[in-house]
């Protein structure tokens, strides 16, 4: 069970600056259980964003957003609504956000921070997709996580060892920063990487925060 909590509204709105038409996605799995992105929260977010002048082109709550096969099938029915959106807001944990980013060629915004995996790692089987850092950065990295997938958790771009798309630490694993640069280039958003990312707040992560995390 991935434990997630909605990001502050201010932060969510800052992500959506410049975007008028938004498609909303929630999850009936963990996010429903933790009230961060279930049916109710998606409906609430819809009206909040409408109040702030956004147009919601559509919304969907998927049973298990981290299951990419299922999500792919489900999103097929929303092709038009997704195409009409400037970007997609996903209300669930980091695994779900990255599933959507992998499936859809659009900017994907994380609406939640992942606090803990509660021992499980969602439906992803081939790679670590979320390291429960508690302060989701997927907004700035094209929906690919450099905390979970870069060997040095780098936040300001690739290290000097990235070569041929592979990580310097192990030629069998892809360099996620190459993937991030490729994806942002495809989305025409490479300028997102020009920003100096400040030191991360590790106190909310499971790695250096308190060993047991609750929602309080």
């Amino acid at each position: 069970m991935l434990i997630s909590k909605q990001k502050p509204l201010e932060e969510i709105l800052s992500y959506l600056e410049g975007d008028k038409n938004i498609f909303l996605i929630g999850c009936k799995g963990c996010a429903e259980g933790w009230e961060s992105g279930g049916e109710k929260q998606v409906a609430e977010m819809k009206s909040t964003l409408q109040e702030k002048g956004k147009t919601i082109t559509g919304s969907v709550v998927v049973d298990m957003l981290c299951d990419s096969v299922l999500t792919k099938l489900k999103l097929r029915a929303y092709k038009k609504e997704i195409a009409a959106a400037d970007s997609i807001m996903v209300l669930t944990d980091g695994a779900g956000v990255q599933t959507v980013a992998e499936l859809v060629n659009k900017v994907v915004h994380p609406g939640c921070n992942t606090l803990s995996s509660g021992g499980a790692h969602a439906e992803w089987k081939e790679a670590e997709r979320c390291l429960e850092c508690g302060d989701c950065v997927l907004e700035f990295t094209g929906g690919l996580c450099p905390i979970a997938r870069c060997s040095k958790h780098l936040l300001n771009g690739p290290c000097g060892g990235s070569q041929g798309g592979k990580c310097e630490v192990d030629p069998n694993i892809p360099c996620v920063w190459q993937q991030i640069v490729d994806r942002l280039a495809k989305l025409g958003q490479l300028d997102k990487l020009e920003r100096l990312v400040t030191p991360k707040n590790w106190s909310v992560s499971l790695i250096s925060g308190p060993p047991v995390k609750s929602l309080s």
Binding site: G157, P158, S162, Q163, G164, Q178, V181, D182, A185, L190
Partner: peptide, 8 residues
């Protein structure tokens, strides 16, 4: 200058 992605 020799690492990838070169354009970055």
């Amino acid at each position: 200058p020799f690492a990838d992605p070169f354009e970055f």
